[in-house]
Amino acid sequence: MTAPSHVLEDDGAGGFLVRVGGEPASTVSPDTARPGLWISRDQHGSPMGRHHGREDRAEFLAT
């Protein structure tokens, strides 16, 4: 089994939309309170966690 492809799209506000298999999966944006971390949110805007890199989260969602 292979993981679906993922794409990061600039959201125009400093964050990124993560698409997995062409469908929106979450957004990631810089954490202003903790520089160097990224916050991921689900499609409804609820926080899902903090991560060290935006690509890390995109890869996680694609697996």
Rank of each mutant, 00 (worst) to 15 (best):
T27R: 15
V20L: 07
T27A: 08
L37G: 01
A33H: 07
Q43I: 11
D42I: 05
S26K: 00
V7E: 15
G21L: 07
H51F: 15
T32R: 14
A13W: 09
G15F: 01
R50Y: 06
S40C: 12
A33T: 06
G53Y: 02
G14L: 03
H44C: 01
E23I: 03
P35R: 06
D10Q: 04
L61P: 00
S29T: 14
F60G: 00
P4I: 07
R34T: 13
P47Y: 03
D10K: 06
H6P: 02
G45I: 06
M1Y: 08
P35G: 01
G12F: 07
W38T: 08
G21S: 01
E59C: 04
A33I: 00
M1S: 11
P30D: 02
D11G: 07
A58C: 09
M48P: 01
F60M: 11
H6I: 05
R41G: 03
P24S: 09
P30R: 03
P30K: 02
G15K: 06
R41F: 06
L37R: 15
L8G: 00
S29A: 15
L61Y: 08
D11V: 09
S29K: 14
V28A: 02
P4M: 07
G53S: 15
S46N: 13
Q43H: 05
T2F: 08
P47G: 02
T2R: 11
E23L: 11
D42Q: 05
